[in-house]
Design a protein around this nucleic acid. Structure first.
Lengths: 217, 217, 217, 217
DNA sequence: AATGAATGAGTATTCATTCAT
DNA sequence: GATGAATGAATACTCATTCAT
């Protein structure tokens, strides 16, 4: 039954829609799909989740709305996919930065630097993540992604503790502290729209210092 | 735009509406106003901004919708008022915690502890702040509030630097680091709905440790 | 502002909505559109602009409200289209009546007669024009239409002056005089609702006489 | 039963409200009443009927809404009173202009001139009349007023016919022609808001010429 | 694979009018 | 005489989603 939407955000989940998503796509089909993802990425980043109507995405491509629902179960679904992609890339960037470094503290440091660089260089990804953070619906996906990063980090922290380089404490909590601080730094000092007006080059150094050494002299 | 019409045809948000001067309220009036504020607080905290219709608030009190608009210019307006109140109380809580403490580092510590306690004890306030964080519209008010807290904290940081207790660095950035870490801790370890399922009593200690000493041993 | 939300919170008339390009309509679509125009025409004529809710129009056709907005950008928009159509038909009627007549004074006379006949035979059009005259919003369109008629007439007047058949004076003003008199005659002697209670067959003759010869013997 | 309003314009007429209007007012009371009338006059002229809320009028005077309803049965009622006043003044202006003139044609001419002068000098009255013309509700009062003017004029026309100065025809219709032309002239060439941008000093002469002699040479 | 058409619930806001104090 | 408080119907417009061709 079409039409209507409910308070808050969500349109009622569609229980009948069988996971058609396992469809095999022709070459043309995959291209279409990719076009949609790209357009949506741009729009979500610029206008936010609610600011982007399914119709806007279709208009962008000059196609009817049916097309969208041929490739995606729902708007919500597409956004989730996008979000997952963003988080994957972030994680990949972190891993690449760490590769070849042995010392756990250095690994943490490289991870911090990589994150900030990533957000700086990919403001679109940052925007999508920010958008996700705004809605309870997506906090699940976000938390998953975070959990991964946190446990990655927590491993290094534990190693650091073993070797005596890192003080004792709850590794997860510490990892969360890092995450929170970085995210906030990025919020404050990085502009979503590329125009690095407020950006400061030494942000990475300062972030690293804060996370590793805290305030005390 | 809403019902009724004015100026011939249009429904556009009435630009003339010069805030019909601040109303004088009778005792009954103030009580009503307070009732509205309370109901709205509860609903906003539970259901979010969009999840709460003006009509819901009025229904809660069993009054007509006009009543709402007798006391408040708009839904947006009421929410802002609520938000400001929340931020004020937070700040007050921080100030009270600091009173009587001289050492800047201790003041910072007390501030951190007070914030976490505040959020823990007043989940409603936390919920409202969270809700505000979700909407660009309110980020202004939120940022103001944050700016105040940051500059409060930065002052202590500077003093700590002078006395050599705090390492050198950008005080504002450090203050933001604290803010970000705490807010994230609260997000992760505190539930909005009182049910302290995930809560951990030692959260304050750990937060203080992270902010002051970072990770390193 | 109306239901639904976009861009986070706000209901303000969506400034981005770039007229989603002119739609291609299928046969069924054009028919639907036409049905809407007809229903709206009837309702606007009978009940006036404000007396006609978008919902009324849709109810008339037994369709959902979305249908209206599939075909028209807004209620205002539809009304403007309707109004333009009315004015066009009026002008066309005038042109047809003039065709084949050379003498400028006769052309003016035929124009006057055609106008009155038009209003008499198409009370619906008259009603729409009247309605438009009631609202500043639409006076623009109306004035444009008037301006056209006035300048058409003024041309004949000038020719008449050249040939000495029409006394000297400001042609535009004279044209406006004709317009005003006719419109008023129609207001007074023609009923919008077909019931030609007050109608008088010789109205055309009398109007012509007044406009051409004034009062004097 | 308070609240609510219906499509179109009108709130349901209040059948119970006994004509309290015959109240005798104290001196202070009459002053209040006069203040309301004045404020309403200004607002109606500036903002139109719907553009002026009862609350606006009261705000202007800094009094509660009850005051308004103490002195007037309804908004509609007040407007009618105002309108009647305007029409009276117009008629008075016309009479004064005619006094002492015997020749019927001259009387008509003086009447025309007086009307235009009146509208030019009292843009507020014009605005109120215009506003009234916009709403069916008030067309009654307006038509009454017009009827008076028309019959006044028709008398002169008849006299002119008797003396052979005016061509034969329906006097009422001729009078309506004059009215319509003048009103339209005023619409076109006079600005409501005093700023006589488009005004032309010789408008009176031209109007007289059009009404008396029509177009022909 | 694609399209155009249709659905319809959901909501902020205004304002004439009344009435208990 | 005056006030503040309360009433509540009325309405434009959005948009995720479905479906017949």
């Amino acid at each position: 039954m079409p039409g209507g939407y409910r308070k808050g955000l969500a349109y009622p989940p569609n229980p009948h829609k069988v996971s058609r998503m396992t469809k095999k796509l022709t070459k043309r089909g995959s291209e279409r799909r990719e076009q949609i993802v790209e357009a949506a990425f741009r729009l979500f980043a610029d206008e936010g989740y609610h600011g982007t109507a399914v119709g806007d995405i279709c208009d962008e491509l000059g196609v009817g709305k049916g097309v969208f629902y041929w490739y995606f179960k729902s708007k919500d679904d597409l956004f989730r996919e996008l979000l997952r992609t963003c988080l994957q890339r972030l994680r990949r960037a972190q891993h690449q930065a760490i590769e070849g470094t042995e010392d756990p503290v250095s690994r943490i440091e490289q991870g911090i630097r990589a994150s900030i660089r990533f957000y700086r260089e990919e403001p679109g990804y940052l925007a999508v993540i920010r958008t996700a953070a705004r809605y309870d619906e997506f906090s699940g996906v976000l938390h998953e992604g975070q959990a991964t990063v946190v446990s990655d980090t927590a491993i290094h922290i534990k190693q650091g503790m073993s070797s005596g380089k890192i003080r004792h404490g709850d590794p997860d909590l510490m990892a969360h502290g890092i995450l929170g601080a970085i995210y906030h730094f990025v919020e404050i000092y990085l502009d979503t729209n590329g125009s690095a007006e407020t950006d400061r080059p030494q942000l990475e150094d300062e972030a690293v210092a804060f996370c590793l050494r805290g305030l005390l002299a």
